[in-house]
């Protein structure tokens, strides 16, 4: 399905741009391209980021699993590890707390005129990714492979059919939104 479309490089560049424009538009309208909103989430005073992410997960998860069951799309998962997912996740998180944007919202923040996102954040991320590329052979050799996970996905880990896990997650995510509503957050 759509393999011709996937192989057309010029068309893919245009599609990337269009999807990005939509993404930036929604992020900005959702208020999550603002440092104040993101840092409010990390200080647990403003739950906008969680609301946006959870809503995106619910809609995204149902849609892509339907499309996968209809053989319209392929998934892109890989095996994580303690050395990669835990250490990398924590490093990212420290950066998240200091910067107050993530790689996607830093781009959105630049679009709405935040100069700290451009000269501080984006420049920093470029330096960080450059450093990683430089040290990749050593990091890959010594750290990334530590404690590799046995499987790629949560359904494989807990030995349940994919759709049951999807339904449990969707219910749980709705529960999170409902809980935040009850708490008045």
């Amino acid at each position: 399905m759509f393999t011709k479309c996937h192989a057309n490089e010029r068309l893919q560049l245009i599609l990337g741009l269009l999807i990005g424009i939509g993404f930036g538009f929604f992020l900005q309208k959702g208020g999550v391209t603002s440092y104040d909103t993101i840092i409010g989430q990390l200080l647990l005073t403003d739950f906008t980021v969680v609301k946006v992410m959870v809503s995106a997960m619910i809609v995204g998860m149902i849609g892509i699993h339907v499309m996968k069951s209809l053989n319209l799309i392929e998934f892109h998962t890989f095996k994580g590890s303690i050395g990669s997912s835990v250490i990398g996740g924590l490093l990212f998180g420290i950066g998240f707390g200091l910067l107050g944007y993530c790689p996607g919202t830093v781009a959105g923040a630049i679009g709405q005129g935040q100069m700290d996102a451009l000269f501080g954040g984006a420049v920093g991320i470029l330096i960080g990714t450059g450093l990683f590329a430089h040290f990749y052979p050593a990091i890959n050799d010594k750290i990334l492979s530590i404690g590799q996970f046995p499987v790629e996905t949560i359904p494989e880990l807990i030995h349940l059919p994919r759709w049951i896990v999807v339904l449990v997650f969707v219910a749980g995510l709705f529960g999170v939104l409902w809980f935040l509503q009850i708490l008045g957050l």
Partner: peptide
Amino acid sequence: FLMALVGGIMMGLGARWSWGCTSGHGI
């Protein structure tokens, strides 16, 4: 700017270290 720069460096490292960011992993 300095705090954003240091945060950005850590984030760039961590994002590639874990093979993804808030959109790649989170969504």
